[in-house]
Design a protein around this nucleic acid. Structure first.
Lengths: 224, 224
DNA sequence: CTGGATCCTCAACGATACTG
DNA sequence: CAGTATCGTTGAGGATCCAG
């Protein structure tokens, strides 16, 4: 309950006291995708003990990072959301995300993809979210059991969880979607090898692969 | 010894497995300032148990983030340094640093400033490190017991730990140096109120305060 | 003196059961 | 649905000791 502390007057130390707690970064990732209820968080974080989640949410609320919206009116469910102060963590979350993704190759045994994780990955890959104004493309992305969507319209990219109505392109892939976003697997090869399956215009997938790109400065060598 | 894992194929989860360990972020901060020996790390991280430091260094070495340079030739001391993969963490460390610094006001009881923390803070404040080519200024910064230096020359800013030869300006300050870097306390006021003492040309301090700036998007309200 | 390893204690985390 | 309660396990904290 009582937060750990490093006793240093230092921004990184202060940040570490919060995001250095187990599960906290993943809770923040899930909330960065959008407001969530307690049970949705439990579902999106397989393995988290419920008491740990409760503690973390309380701590994050005390720190002013997460906001707990109590049953207001007809809606009788408690919703957790990032506060503005919590939103400010986004650059840090994205930077950590990029770094971590740079070290990934294939999933380790037992590793899964969650809705929030693929949504967050696509959002990071979208970068500043600016695209040519004339683009108007809607994508639905399936990775294993989970679904996310990407909309390029009015000059911006919007990424969200779950399906989308009338997608122009449906993308179905496995973990190798990571290699596409990393720019290590080009669109044509991904489709030719069957790493990615699409329903729709292949040119739209080229656009997808060219636009959503996680910039790694250096690649990790393949596993020895 | 055996790293914790979240069982998610997700960049942020992978990163969290490493930087989410207690003390790891501060170890990386100290190493980001420059290569360090075991005892230097112990000295710069008051309160760290020696076994925890040893474990973390081993884990970081296994992950390819830290490099252990064994006694090579005459030098008979083991030196720890970031590998290229470790250097890639810099953007994430800086982002966390900025975020954490945005939530700081005054030191909490017992909080100290270490050489690495002030050096890292100045480095973050230096941003991309680009300044006009004609500038040639050397600063020595004292905060409490610790010292760092800033050199603006040849169009770039170099930040380092410890003193520097023949500084043009010596800056002595307390924790309020944070407010100067945050842009919440302007140079003239800082000197007028005695929050910062200088030995040298006040115009050089103006340059210092204008150039080294941690950009916060939003300020945290003062403690209620 | 540096670079750790060992031992013990205790707080935090993990798993599961249970409740307003 | 949104947690709390309980209890076992693990890792951090702190002191000490040891090898090169």
């Amino acid at each position: 309950m009582t937060n750990q502390h490093y006793d240093q007057f230092c921004g990184l130390a202060r940040a570490a006291e919060i995001v250095g707690q187990r599960w906290t970064l993943l809770i923040l990732r899930d909330l960065s995708v959008g407001p969530r209820r307690y049970t949705e968080l439990v579902a999106g974080l397989p393995g988290i003990p419920t008491n740990t989640l409760a503690s973390r949410l309380k701590e994050l609320e005390d720190e002013g990072i997460v906001e707990r919206t109590a049953p207001s009116g007809a809606e009788r469910s408690i919703v957790y959301a990032l506060t503005p102060r919590g939103e400010e963590l986004r650059p840090a979350l994205d930077a950590l995300s990029r770094w971590g993704a740079g070290g990934m190759r294939m999933p380790r045994d037992g590793e899964i993809v969650t809705t929030a994780s693929i949504t967050a990955a696509l959002r990071v890959a979208a970068g500043d979210g600016v695209v040519p104004r004339e683009w108007d493309s809607t994508y639905e992305v399936h990775v294993g059991e989970v679904t996310a969507h990407v909309i390029m319209r009015d000059g911006v990219i919007v990424v969200g969880s779950g399906p989308v109505e009338n997608p122009q392109l449906v993308i179905t892939a496995g973990p190798q979607i990571r290699d596409v976003l990393a720019g290590e697997l080009d669109a044509a090869t991904a489709i030719a090898t069957g790493a990615v399956q699409i329903e729709g215009d292949p040119a739209l997938f080229e656009r997808f692969a060219d636009t959503l790109r996680v910039p790694f400065s250096v690649n990790v060598p393949a596993i020895a």
